[in-house]
Amino acid sequence: MTGEWTVPRVKSGIPGFDELVNGGFPKGTTVLVTGPTGSGKTTFAVQFVYKGVELYDEPGVIVTLEERAVDLRREMRAFGWDIEKYEKEGKIAIIDGVSAVVGLPSEEQYVLEGNLNTEDFLRYIYRVVKAIDAKRLVIDSIPSIAFRLKKEEEIREVLLQLNTILLEMGVTSILTTEAPEPSRGKISRYGIEEYIARGVVLLDFIEREVELKRYLLIRKMRETKHSMKKYPFEIMSDGLVVYPSGEIY
């Protein structure tokens, strides 16, 4: 007798979201979170790691390539998230990928040097993931990888390498990227990120009664059933919340 295969799930830690993906992200998948500036991509990604530790005891790594680790910690304290507490416990690691690029000294435990090539960049992330036995990984953001490695013209090759090593590590990963004009179908900076990732979540704005409202759309998620509707979400005092019953058509 053959039993039905059940896909192992990783809870997102985002209220309302897991209902839209049949109980959580497929374990070990790579998800692209895309959207215009200010849509909540970094909050979504960091919440995934922070709540992974707080609620499910799953260590996580955050690679921050757009702002210094110290600034990221400060911003996330606004949600009541004490990232530093879990860093001291060895359950969260923040890799500072900004300081060296802008020529600032860094006192962080994990720092990317300013002149790493693609292979060294990926190898360093791999080492940190293994060092804390991470189950979750965030890289914020893909355009900053291209800028940092001066490989923008070879971004496809870099992303293919990145996706391969993420799958090899077995972590469940979120990558963020910019969506310049999602209303016109351009949902990523380079137009190829969505083809490499196994899942794509779009965060965007829609105008309702002379006011901008946030919405979320799952464009793709392999290995699971998922909704294809637009759902409202808000960034509250304690993080991001999705409203599965409040569909935007």
Rank of each mutant, 00 (worst) to 15 (best):
I139R: 02
R127F: 13
I174V: 09
F205G: 01
L137M: 14
S188D: 03
R222S: 10
R148P: 06
E207D: 08
I206N: 03
K225M: 07
S227L: 06
Y124R: 08
K186A: 10
V158D: 01
E152P: 04
K186H: 12
G185Y: 12
R208F: 13
V129Q: 00
L166T: 00
I165C: 08
E211F: 04
N163D: 14
R184C: 13
K229V: 12
R219I: 06
E168G: 10
L137N: 00
A131K: 15
I145K: 08
K135N: 01
T224E: 07
L217V: 12
D133L: 09
I218L: 11
K135M: 02
K220R: 14
Y126V: 05
S188F: 01
A146K: 03
F147Q: 06
M169K: 01
L203N: 01
S173F: 03
L166W: 04
Y124C: 01
I206S: 09
E209Q: 14
S188C: 06
I165E: 12
I196S: 10
L167H: 14
M169I: 04
N163C: 09
V210E: 13
P180F: 00
D204G: 03
R123S: 15
V129M: 08
R127K: 13
I165F: 13
I142W: 00
G191K: 12
V128D: 09
K130F: 12
R214F: 03
P143Q: 06
R222D: 13
V128L: 10
I145R: 01
E152T: 11
D120P: 04
E152V: 11
K225G: 05
L202W: 04
V129A: 04
T177H: 07
E168Q: 13
E223N: 06
V201G: 00
K229P: 07
L137A: 09
L175A: 12
Y195Q: 07
R198P: 02
K220A: 05
K130V: 15
E193D: 08
V210M: 13
E178F: 05
I145M: 15
R127D: 13
M169S: 04
I132M: 03
E181M: 12
K186Q: 15
I206M: 11
A134R: 00
M169E: 03
I139H: 01
E207Q: 08
P182Q: 06
R214Y: 07
L203A: 04
L159I: 11
V128R: 09
L167F: 07
E178H: 09
L159H: 01
G185A: 12
E152M: 11
L175I: 10
R148T: 10
L216H: 04
I192P: 01
K150Y: 10
E157R: 11
M169V: 02
T176N: 04
K135C: 00
R184H: 14
K220H: 11
Y190E: 08
L216Q: 05
E168K: 13
R123W: 15
M169P: 08
D133H: 12
N163G: 02
E223F: 02
V129N: 03
R208Q: 14
L175D: 04
P182E: 07
K220C: 11
P180A: 07
A134F: 02
G199M: 02
E207P: 07
L162R: 07
F121D: 06
I206E: 10
V200W: 06
R127E: 14
T176A: 05
R123N: 15
A146C: 05
V201A: 08
